[in-house]
């Protein structure tokens, strides 16, 4: 089953993130790792944007005049930078508490972002030049259905960016075991069996009409912290375009 009406959200997952909503924007709170991850993934996104649209790498608004959709936007940690880069941004998240936190924050920051609580398949959102879906695939029940809905939001000539943890011994140990045990990542955030490998993600995307490029790793080192790397074993990020 993978049509647009399929519910891809798990109730308990949405509730878990709703509890975290209040703390989303505290750089020292329970989302600290996500705040640290933000500049790293934004660096990848910026490079992908500049390459895809052959833009000037120094200009401050490379997304001016473009529509962007962030799926699983949380409280807007990615939507706000995309808006500052000039995009007209829509953020969708399953947890209404996240969307409430996101609206509140964007309002106080003076940013105009269209936030929606719910499923992308049911929203009738139209299409977007940039679709981002970061650290979400591992949380959805039916990955094929979810990615089909995401692909349907991608405008012709558009760019999709997906990131997710790899299903390896390292990620099991570090992201689920150690990181949750010492509180770096809130308990219950990840279920290792739901993680997909880069090969599996490539196949999933292909099945919904998208072609994935060579992924880049997001690795962790004691000195460098989180950084972009050729090591895909922990977490990885990749661009995809419509195959046709």
């Amino acid at each position: 089953m993978s049509d647009a009406s399929t519910a891809t959200i798990r109730e308990h997952e949405a509730a878990h993130f709703g509890r975290l909503a209040k703390e989303w924007w505290d750089p020292k709170g329970s989302s600290a790792m996500l705040h640290k991850l933000n500049p790293v993934r934004l660096e990848y996104i910026r490079e992908a944007i500049d390459l895809h649209w052959a833009g000037d790498t120094r200009q401050l608004k490379p997304l001016a005049g473009r529509r962007a959709l962030d799926i699983g936007c949380g409280a807007g940690l990615l939507c706000e930078p995309l808006a500052r880069m000039g995009a007209e941004v829509t953020g969708v998240d399953a947890a209404p508490e996240n969307i409430a936190a996101a609206r509140e924050h964007a309002g106080r920051m003076g940013l105009d972002i269209d936030y929606r609580a719910g499923e992308i398949g049911k929203e009738g959102l139209g299409t977007f030049d940039l679709v981002t879906c970061l650290e979400v695939v591992e949380h959805v029940a039916d990955k094929t259905a979810f990615l089909a809905q995401a692909a349907a939001c991608l405008a012709p000539g558009g760019l999709m960016i997906v990131s997710t943890p790899n299903r390896t011994a390292q990620s099991r140990l570090l992201m689920v075991g150690a990181a949750e045990a010492i509180g770096l990542i809130p308990r219950g955030t990840h279920d290792w069996d739901d993680f997909v490998t880069p090969e599996e993600l490539g196949e999933l995307l292909e099945s919904v009409g998208l072609a994935m490029d060579e992924p880049k790793g997001i690795a962790f080192g004691p000195n460098k912290g989180l950084h972009l790397s050729d090591d895909l074993s922990l977490n990885y990020i990749a661009t995809a375009r419509r195959a046709d």
């Binding site: 933000n38 401050l60 500052r84």
Partner: peptide
């Protein structure tokens, strides 16, 4: 560098 990435000048990571 941060503003290129859409981060605010006062961002805690910067």
């Amino acid at each position: 560098d941060g503003m290129r990435l859409g981060l605010e000048p006062g961002d805690a990571q910067l």
